[in-house]
Design a protein around this nucleic acid. Sequence first.
RNA 1: GCCCCUAUCGUCUAGCGGCUAGGACAGCGGCUUCUCAAGCCGUUAACCGGGGUUCGAUUCCCCGUGGGGGCACCA
Length: 464
Amino acid sequence: MSPVRVRFAPSPTGFFHIGSARTALFNWLYARHTGGTFILRIEDTDQARDSEKFLRLIYDSLTWMGMDWDEGPNANGVGERGDYGPYRQSQRAEVYQRYLARLRNAGRAYEKDGAIWFKQLGDRYTVFDDHRKKEVEKVKSDLVVIEDQIRGRVERAEDEDFVIVRSDGNPVFHFVNVVDDIEMKVTHIIRGEDHLSNTSKHVRLYEGFGVTPPAFAHIPLILKSPEMGQGKMSKRDQGALVEEYQRRHFLPEALVNYLALLGWNPGEDREKMPIAEIVRRFDLPAVNQSNAKFDSKKLAHMNMVYLLEQPADRFLALAKDYFAQQPNGASVMADESYFAEIMSLAQPKIKSVEELGAYTNYFFTEEFPIDDKVKAKVMGKGEPKARLAELMATLPAMDFASDASIEAAIKSLADGKALGFGDYQGVARLALTGTNAGPSITSIFRVLGRDRTLARLQRFAAVA
RNA sequence: GCCCCUAUCGUCUAGCGGCUAGGACAGCGGCUUCUCAAGCCGUUAACCGGGGUUCGAUUCCCCGUGGGGGCACCA
């Protein structure tokens, strides 16, 4: 069997959609699983809608998700690699001319209304088409049989001539897609199910060229989640674009892991897996046949699990990346070791990098807000003002060397009053952070330091 | 309207003729705990309907119904 060659063939007409990313991923996984070649081909034949900046978005998104391509344009936008180029359809006009000539010589192409049409073989008749509200010419012919790797045998009638070159001279998708797949020796076409109906056209085209079609594998589509409504996920839907996850500092490996699970199952109840294992387990027959609804909660959970297990230095890098984009980022990161200390406190507690700003805010400013609901709750129970006063009295002599020494000091204070640690924890946290959520109170004491801790307690006591 | 694909908890899914229908996310309850998370334990929840085939159908076939896609000089 010849080595596997698969391709991802986006057209740069919009933002990089999550569904496109999943199609790319399945192709990439299959190439890596089989030791084959992953080709990136740019289908930029629709000049009116294409744009250079969308091209870069495709390169960036694929790279961010870790999908490297063996052939195609270089990610920096300069030049390309591979023996079957050019890899942008806008530069392949000569190839299309050659293939058009082949079709003409075979009597399978003709001109009408200034466009060039592909000719079906068989007896002709006309019929009124309800959908298009006009008479159309049909051809009596055998059904096209598609042996799909995921869906099995699919039969479909392909009984009309169709345009392959527009009257403005630009070849259409069906034609260039098939020509390029032949020229680039693609062995497996893995694409969304929305192309299944087109496949009969493509098979006819292969026949017209006298070429055996490659294997087809039509993967299920990604649908909107129930709260988003009905139908296929579209560019306008919340969470539909890859760049959104990049912007929100998701971990790309979490997104990839989640996407791999949408329409594919590795068996053995495995879900969270390193990419090497996904590559090892992935195969076409295990891909599902029914569409999947997108679940942002499950993605968020996957992201959290990945985040929790990151080594401290990687988490710190992610945090820096995040704060670099925040308005107050520079001042927050000014003291490197202080910043690192706080990030290490935050890592086990947050669910996503984008929570970092709000979660650590009070470490970097005295202007943090006080949560009124929390305040009402904390101040309404026991004698918080008395506890606050006791804490302030104890503070000057407290040993700030470690969390343990701070904890011991507070505990002995509590013991002396026949109280518990919790009687001090809540009010101290409120005074120091303005909320009821955060790292251990002893860590907050230690990191803030004696002076700032005391000052905040005093300030709070004055207004509480 | 025509054509194609599809159908198990709310969601992602396991199941490939005989199962107490399993896992994950979400939900709910509890434990743990200095708060909040996390974690741990438990729990609610599903085979779309009707015909066949078979000793026996979630599983195979057919028909409905639901969902999705396509029917362009878009890709």
